[in-house]
Write a protein that binds this DNA or RNA. Structure first.
Lengths: 162, 162
DNA sequence: TGGGATATCATGGGGCACTATGGGCGTCAA
DNA sequence: TTGACGCCCATAGTGCCCCATGATATCCCA
């Protein structure tokens, strides 16, 4: 399968390196990504990592903003900002740069989270917090607890009922 | 028959492997699943396990959302981040990874529960508790009203033992 | 109808290959 | 020189392939 799935935590070694999970590396190869790009998530303390198509996704996102406003430019600067190119060494490890650490809060351990077409890098603690929140939101959606919002999503949400 | 039916408990061996019940394996084959997709249930300490169509359904559902809104992100976070592929070894066994154990509480034994188009994996004790509660709810439903809530409470109280 | 032969299953374990992880060393630039 | 970085190797741990065993179930034939 060629999708990034599941999540793992690995330790950063004394030199600041982390092994990218073997399964993820396999996906990278299967998808033919010759290079990995890491971009700062706009609204989360995480990095999005993927191939060149990841850049397209961000450009679409930014294109949603009014080009006459400062916002679009800020967004672009923020997430493209520094060199966000990740190089896999020959043992399949990447180096956790300050660019990554600053944005994610990563220090000793890294959580890799599959997201289908790309994956994310998190500080494990923050990931747990965010994950719990995301689950709570989904549960709410499913149970249609919030009368107003639920209405809007009702038709769609009936999906997962078995 | 090509539905997952009934339930079984099997032991995990010293290497962390469990045999998937032969009957389930037959269904897997009949349905042409080449890989198994496992997903952490949103509100239960269980894993849903099925073919790739299970994942496809989620992805199609996500595609209906605005990809840059939080709902889409939450959904992807759930079905990709909390999902994994299970590999059947050639003896029809799967390995109980920490990924599964953490969510389900599984340690020494696994309960396989048929659910029609997919099946579930539980820690046997928790399954028993949950089953009792489900039966209590059904009973309450059949008896028709909230007038019998007292009864339901009684049932729950008797069977909750965590 | 009973009893053995056969197939299938659950379970255990050996062993190889690969993965994660640590560390040595040279190179290049500040 | 020092520290960041790339390249290389060593080692323990894990996953996965393959085979062996005993228990059950199924079938066939006397």
């Amino acid at each position: 399968m060629d999708r990034f799935l599941s999540n793992t935590v690995s330790r950063i070694d004394a030199k600041g390196r982390v092994s990218v999970p073997a399964h993820f590396r396999a996906v990278v190869q299967k998808r033919g990504y010759s290079e990995l790009y890491a971009l700062r998530c706009l609204d989360l303390p995480a990095m999005d990592v993927g191939g060149l198509d990841l850049l397209d996704r961000y450009e679409q996102r930014i294109a949603q903003e009014d080009p006459f406003l400062q916002t679009a430019d800020d967004m672009s600067f923020f997430c493209h900002g520094d060199g966000a190119f990740l190089k896999l060494d020959q043992d399949g490890r990447i180096t956790m740069t300050d660019f990554i650490r600053e944005h994610t809060g990563i220090s000793a351990e890294v959580a890799f989270v599959g997201r289908g077409n790309f994956f994310q890098i998190w500080e494990p603690g923050r990931l747990a917090t965010y994950g719990a929140q995301a689950r709570a939101r989904l549960l709410q959606l499913r149970q249609g607890t919030k009368a107003h919002e639920a209405k809007a999503h009702e038709a769609k949400a009936g999906e997962r009922s078995e």
